[in-house]
């Protein structure tokens, strides 16, 4: 176990180095957040019907989504991609660690360090600056109960995201170039994860399906717990959903990796 923890710690520390990049990204994410808030506020302004989410909840949801955006597995882990392309992945196999565990540990660090770097200033902006520049468009502080339930939900989101990232690594054993699968998964995660449209605003018939997919576990469900759209008493279901998907994705990823390793041919003398 300590081996995996060491990998997480080392990778976490090296990812924390990219602080300037995080700052540049912050500006872009604030800009996109503002545009999304203005668009959704305009839709809400024109409608008098009761919606499954109130406007303050939707606005909070947008800011939380911008803050934890990097949980979405858009790209492959370039280091792993190079290892598989060049065949140096065999060195990893000689280590006294399980390859899937190693990849999961790397993914876990990748889904925490950059997220923290962007999340903290984004929270500060959305909660402290927004009330002054645009009153009503801020991320409202959660109730203590909602916050207490959001923390484990966020941890669950990291687990699902890490499991998906590891699964993408495994698929590299077949695709090698690593463009197709992450692009497809990234598109699904963007659309069905609540980044384009908050999931509760989709047509009612689609909502039960979208809520049950693993994509909802990363940004959507935790944000709804934070904003109170899902009451704290029901947040246990969110955690159960996240753990179930984590287990399913890990089991599938391990099985797929086993098959991949059986047909792995390393070239060179």
């Amino acid at each position: 176990m300590s081996g995996y923890l060491a990998i997480v710690a080392a990778r976490f520390r090296s990812l924390l180095q990219y602080r300037a990049a995080a700052l540049g990204g912050l500006f872009t994410q604030i800009f996109f957040g503002l545009v999304r808030v203005m668009i959704l506020a305009a839709f809400y302004g024109a409608s008098s019907r009761a919606q499954p989410m109130t406007l303050p909840q939707v606005i909070g949801y947008v800011w939380l989504g911008q803050a934890t955006l990097l949980l979405i597995p858009w790209r492959v882990d370039e280091d792993v991609a190079v290892q598989i392309r060049t065949g140096t992945v065999v060195y990893e196999l000689t280590r006294p660690l399980d390859l899937y565990g190693l990849w999961f540990a790397r993914s876990f660090a990748w889904r925490t360090a950059p997220v923290f770097l962007r999340m903290i200033p984004m929270f500060a902006f959305a909660m402290l600056v927004m009330p002054h520049v645009a009153p009503g468009w801020q991320l409202a502080a959660p109730s203590p109960a909602a916050f207490a339930m959001w923390v484990p939900c966020f941890a669950g989101a990291v687990l699902v995201s890490s499991a998906l990232t590891s699964l993408i690594n495994v698929t590299l054993m077949w695709t090698l170039t690593g463009d197709g699968v992450p692009m497809l998964l990234g598109t699904c995660a963007t659309m069905f994860g609540g980044l384009v449209v908050p999931l509760p605003l989709f047509p009612d018939w689609a909502r039960p399906i979208l809520d049950s997919l693993p994509f909802a576990a990363m940004l959507d469900l935790p944000s709804r717990v934070f904003t109170g759209n899902i009451p704290p008493s029901e947040a246990g279901w969110v955690i159960a959903h996240q753990l179930a998907w984590t287990i399913a994705l890990v089991v599938f990823g391990r099985w797929l990796l086993g098959r991949g390793l059986r047909r792995l041919v390393v070239q060179g003398g």
Binding site: A46, S47, R49, L201, F202, P203
Partner: peptide, 16 residues
């Protein structure tokens, strides 16, 4: 998917 998103919002709100 960007346009699909716009469609989904119009499906719910009717007008912008």
């Amino acid at each position: 998917i960007e346009f699909f998103g716009i469609w989904a919002l119009f499906a719910r709100f009717g007008t912008l």
